[in-house]
């Protein structure tokens, strides 16, 4: 399976899968000019990977997202949920800046409808 390693730019996040730890990491800011162009290959990779794997951890550490990125991240969470329902071991860690009063609220908003283990973890900004 093709590796997933997208380096961050000023407007797009780092998206990287480590095959040794089984962790998919998304970090940085996400407001690409065309979020759907950016996230479509990520979603395709994820669908294929979830077909082949039994367990996946996804670590989010995203500071800002534009509306279309939010939609794409919700799509990623939907895929996680479907995989969990299919018997895969899924875990989500959502890191947020403990000094940002809005960040926890945002994390909880993402976690609200997700039916897989979703850990909200504070980190130093």
């Amino acid at each position: 399976m093709a590796p997933l390693d997208l380096q961050p730019t000023g407007s797009s996040p780092k998206v990287c899968f480590d095959p040794f730890t089984g962790i998919l990491e998304l970090s940085g800011d996400s407001y690409p000019e065309n979020s759907f162009d950016f996230y479509t290959p990520v979603l395709s990779w994820l669908k294929e990977h979830l077909r082949e794997t039994e367990a996946l951890q996804v670590h989010f550490n995203i500071v800002y997202m534009n509306s279309s990125s939010i939609k794409c991240v919700l799509d990623i969470l939907d895929l996680m949920e479907e995989a969990e329902a299919a018997g895969k071991k899924i875990l989500i860690n959502w890191y947020y800046d403990r000094e940002n009063p809005r960040a926890l609220d945002l994390a909880e908003e993402f976690a609200e409808d997700v039916g897989v283990p979703f850990h909200i973890i504070p980190v130093e900004g």
């Binding site: 534009n66 509306s67 939010i70 919700l74 809005r102 960040a103 609220d105 945002l106 409808d113």
Partner: peptide, 14 residues
């Protein structure tokens, strides 16, 4: 609805 809610929160933060 979710996208709009979260997006509004990001706008406030911004």
């Amino acid at each position: 609805d979710k996208v709009i809610t979260i997006s509004d929160k990001y706008q406030v933060q911004l």
